[in-house]
């Protein structure tokens, strides 16, 4: 392979934008973002691409490569089919700004609505590793929003009004499972964040570049906590008798 053919989405609206074809010299080990940079440097300087680290750590370069949500800096050209052009589209769940750049600000706005970490006034701050292992998995999140993009509730059903999406579900899980947090977000989780909307079809987990088990370790345990509170009569009676939350 001496040359790679890319078809990159160009435009400021999805209706009028279209794929434009480019030929880029192949270099061993190159990733899709390298090819996009080559296009910027040599053909179209105005190609809009968001990126920062080129090391799969800043979460900026999210796009859809051959229809799959990916980090372009983590997608090696040699991992893609060689006999067809590589198609690069912007993320579909967010408003398009230009070319491959979308407006992901909704994620930050929704995040602000999550009740923040709330420790007890007299917390002693000694924590054990076994208590924070779970949270550390969630802390690996780089906020690439690929999971938000692929989640059908946001992507296909447009329910940003009712469901916070997988990224924010694990943010809530991180707070809820924190050994030093005393706030109870169960009602918030059910009503405002809409955990019940998730039908655990696991696409978020499939696309997460950090390999976070979003559904198994985050969303399902949260759903179970909601069941404890709202759907389990035995737990309800137990709480009444023991006076515990």
């Amino acid at each position: 392979m001496s040359e790679v053919v890319l078809q990159v989405f160009r435009g400021t609206t999805r209706e009028q934008g279209e794929l434009k074809e480019y030929r880029v010299p192949y270099v061993e080990g190159m990733v899709v973002l390298d090819a996009l940079h080559y296009i910027q440097a040599n053909y179209d300087g105005d190609l809009a691409v968001r990126w920062n680290c080129k090391a799969a750590k800043c979460g900026s370069c999210s796009a859809e490569v051959n229809g799959k949500p990916r980090l372009t800096c983590k997608t090696r050209i040699d991992s893609l089919p060689k006999d067809e052009p590589i198609r690069v589209y912007p993320m579909r769940a967010f408003p398009l700004i230009k070319d491959l750049v979308t407006d992901v600000s909704w994620n930050y706005e929704a995040k602000k609505r999550i009740p923040p970490f709330t420790p007890d006034k007299n917390t002693d701050w000694i924590m054990f590793q076994e208590d924070i292992d779970r949270l550390q998995e969630f802390r690996k999140c780089i906020e690439c929003f690929l999971c938000q993009n692929v989640c059908h509730i946001l992507r296909d059903h447009g329910r940003k009004d009712a469901f916070f999406g997988p990224r924010l579900m694990i943010k809530i899980a991180e707070l809820e499972m924190h050994p030093k947090d005393i706030l109870d977000r169960t009602e918030f989780l059910r009503k405002e964040a809409g955990v019940g909307f998730c039908n655990i079809t696991k696409c978020c987990t499939e696309v997460c570049p950090e390999g976070i088990h979003i559904t198994d370790n985050g969303i399902i345990p949260l759903k179970e906590r909601v069941v404890d509170r709202y759907f389990d009569p035995v737990m309800w009676i137990f709480r009444k008798i023991s006076g515990r939350k």
Partner: peptide, 11 residues
């Protein structure tokens, strides 16, 4: 069926 704004999942 992509029912814009109507999906309710498991709620």
């Amino acid at each position: 069926k992509s029912r814009q704004g109507k999906y309710t999942g498991e709620t």
